[in-house]
Every structure is written in C-alpha cells, then in structure tokens.
Design a protein around this nucleic acid. Structure first.
Lengths: 142, 142
DNA sequence: GCTCAATTATTGATAGCTCAAATATTGATG
DNA sequence: CATCAATATTTGAGCTATCAATAATTGAGC
C-alpha cells in the first residue's frame, strides 16, 4: 500500500466527473445517448440476441435494458419477440432503419472520439483500457 | 490518427459502465453518494465558500449543487446563508456534525479505494490521473 | 441615478441508472 | 406430476444529472 491517499481520491472524483460530462456531450453530437448507441452498436453484430445476453455484454441493469429497448422499438429501430423455445426470453433484432441510423451516426461518433482522445497514442489507449478493466474487475468484488 | 477505432469505442463504453457501477457501490459502502461525499470533503478544507466557487471545484451542475446542499442542510451537515457583501451568493459552511460524519466514513472510503485500486502501483495511478485529466480537457472543448 | 449586461441561485422538465419486488416460465427433484 | 428453485423480464420507487427558464442582485457606463 505504498501510494498516496489523495491520488486515489482524485481518481474517484475524476471518474464520476468525466462520465457526467461525457454522456451529454456525446448525445449532443450523435443524437444518441451513449447507452442507446452501445445497444444498437452491439446489435449490429448479433442479428438476433436475447435481452439477458445483451445485458451481460453492455453491463447495464436489466431494468434499464428493458426501457431502452422498448423505446427503440417504438422508434422503429429494433423488433422484439418472445423466444418460442423459451417463453421467458425476449429476442431483439435490429431493423433496417436501426442499422441505417447507427451507420449514419458513425461519422459523428468517430469525430467525437477523435477529439476525446486527441494527443493519445496507441500505447496509451491500450494501457488505459487495461487499467479500466482491472478497476472494473476490482469493483465487481466489492 | 494511427490507432484503431475499436479501442476508442471500447474506452467510451468502459467509462460509462465503470462510473455507473462505481457510484452505487461507493454509496453502499460509505452511506454517502459520491457527489455528497465530494462536497463535504471539499468543505472540510474551506471553512466557508460560496456555492458557485464550490461548483467550479467539483464540476457538478449548479442545479445539482443547490439540491445537494439543501438536503445536506436539512440533514444538519452544512449551514447556508446569503453573503452580506453580495446578496446573490450563498455561503456554505460545514457544521461540526458534518465534519464528524465525513471523518467517520473516511475509513470506509479508504478501504473502498484500496480495493478499487488494488494491484495498482503509484506510477500507474499517476499515469491514470494524467490521462483522465487530458481527456477531460479534450472533452471540454467539444 | 438609470439602464442593461453579467453573475448567482433556484426551479421545472426530462432522462438515465440502480435496486427491489412482482410476474411468468422453465426444468429438476422427489 | 406436483413442487420449488432458478431464470428472464417487467414495473415501481428513489436518486442523480443535465439543460433551460426564471428571479434577484450587482456593477459598469452613459
């Protein structure tokens, strides 16, 4: 335990602040909230997937998943139906409209992240990912 | 622009996820939300400070500041009064009760952050702080 | 001294998130 | 085949956060 207390505190606050500022800015630039974007983004590569599987990937609470997907269904970006093989499950599918939407905002997202990580090199990004994943793992055990 | 797209995306999602998991866990372990904790924590070293100055330090929206401090006043942890020299300002002061509370939960906070950053060395923490601050700066310009 | 822009705080509207409780379905066990 | 634990989703309650609009106060410039 050779490190200073104040660095840990600083980081604790930094995470919260950063995330609070990140969300609204992202939404303003892409027309999608970060969570909705991530959901659609994952759906692109899955074609069909149950809500619970999707939940495990994006790490958002079940309740939030349900509400997001309900709204995305209303917007016409996804379809939802029960799994005939297991009626507990809801299977989600990205519509053509949804695919188009997520495709359209790729450019905005790209320029957003480019700005967000400007002056970062590849090594730094990799190191950042590594550290965040380790923290996430540490937190899970609390 | 020599870095891969998927790393940037991964980080984008990681920040959100991490912060979403961090808040509730912290609150469960310390009886204070991260924001309330930070507010009280800053007040310890200031004795008296205006809400707007406090806002600049913690980087939370004015509206949220007002609501937090109102509740903390009801709880008896802070007092609030108008600045006689400038009636627009509200001056916040930490009560003895508030000081005691923040002192009492220091140990919980400490063991929380120790767990959160376990297996991190000092150099990594410093590097993490540096990168997060740079990102914060980048975001501010968007 | 009056007007007007800037500053500070507050309130209302909206949305996201978590947790806990409720509902429905499945599958295993006796 | 009845029961019961596990799984998947949904709903309700409670927080927190942002943004936008409003109100009160101050200070500068004419």
């Amino acid at each position: 335990m050779g490190y200073s207390v104040s660095e840990q505190e600083q980081l604790l606050f930094l995470f919260k602040t950063l995330s609070n500022q990140l969300g609204p800015k992202f939404e303003k630039n892409t027309q999608f909230s970060l969570s909705r974007f991530e959901l659609l983004y994952q759906l692109v590569q899955f074609e069909e997937i149950s809500q619970s599987s999707l939940q495990k990937i994006v790490n958002i609470d079940h309740a939030a998943i349900t509400r997001h997907l309900k709204q995305l269904e209303i917007d016409g970006y996804v379809t939802r139906r029960r799994n005939p093989k297991d009626n507990r499950e809801t299977i989600v599918h990205l519509t053509e409209e949804g695919r188009q939407q997520i495709f359209n905002c790729q450019k905005d997202k790209q320029s957003f992240t480019n700005q967000m990580f400007s002056h970062f090199n590849d090594k730094e990004l990799k190191s950042l990912i590594d550290m965040l994943q380790r923290i996430q793992k540490n937190i899970k055990e609390i």
